Amino acid sequence: KKRTSIEVSVKGALESHFLKCPKPSAQEITNLADSLQLEKEVVRVWFCNRRQKEKR
């Protein structure tokens, strides 16, 4: 499966949402994916990866 490159503006939106809520619910992920026009899975994985980055 190909990697999804996320635009800078979208990254900013994801980042600001992450600061408010690092573990969004499935519903929040769906809403966020719809508003940013990304697949739910891409948003879910982004949050997962971002939480791991926070641990490092």
Rank of each mutant, 00 (worst) to 15 (best):
Q52L: 08
L36M: 08
R51E: 08
K53G: 07
Q52R: 08
P22W: 01
H17V: 10
V43D: 00
S35Q: 12
G12D: 14
S25F: 02
A26W: 08
L19W: 05
V43F: 00
N31F: 08
R3V: 13
L36K: 01
N31Q: 13
K55Y: 11
V8T: 15
E7V: 07
K1Q: 06
V43T: 03
L32V: 06
S16F: 06
R56T: 11
Q37E: 12
L19T: 08
E39W: 01
V42W: 09
L38V: 11
S16M: 10
V42Y: 12
V42E: 14
V45G: 11
K53V: 12
A13L: 10
V42N: 03
C48P: 03
A33M: 02
L14F: 01
T4A: 08
S5F: 07
A13N: 06
K53C: 08
K53L: 14
S5K: 15
E7K: 13
R3A: 08
V43K: 03
A13F: 07
N31A: 10
Q27T: 08
S5Q: 15
A26M: 11
N31R: 13
T30C: 12
I29K: 00
S35V: 13
E7M: 12
K40G: 11
K23D: 15
I29N: 00
K55G: 14
P22K: 04
E39D: 15
R3L: 14
P22H: 04
Q27V: 09
C48W: 09
K40N: 09
V8Q: 15
R3W: 08
A33W: 01
S5L: 11
H17C: 07
S35F: 07
A13S: 10
E54M: 08
L32I: 15
E41I: 00
E7L: 10
K11H: 12
E28F: 03
E15N: 00
Q37S: 11
K23F: 12
K20Q: 14
R44A: 04
R56M: 13
S9I: 05
E7P: 15
K55E: 13
R56G: 10
E39K: 06
E39I: 01
L38D: 00
Q52I: 07
N31S: 12
V42M: 15
E15H: 03
P22R: 04
T4P: 06
I29Y: 01
V8C: 07
V8R: 13
K55T: 09
K11P: 12
R50L: 02
C48T: 13
L14H: 00
A33F: 00
K11Q: 12
E54H: 04
K23T: 11
L14W: 00
V43I: 05
F47S: 04
C48D: 12
K40S: 13
R50D: 02
L32R: 02
A33R: 00
S9M: 05
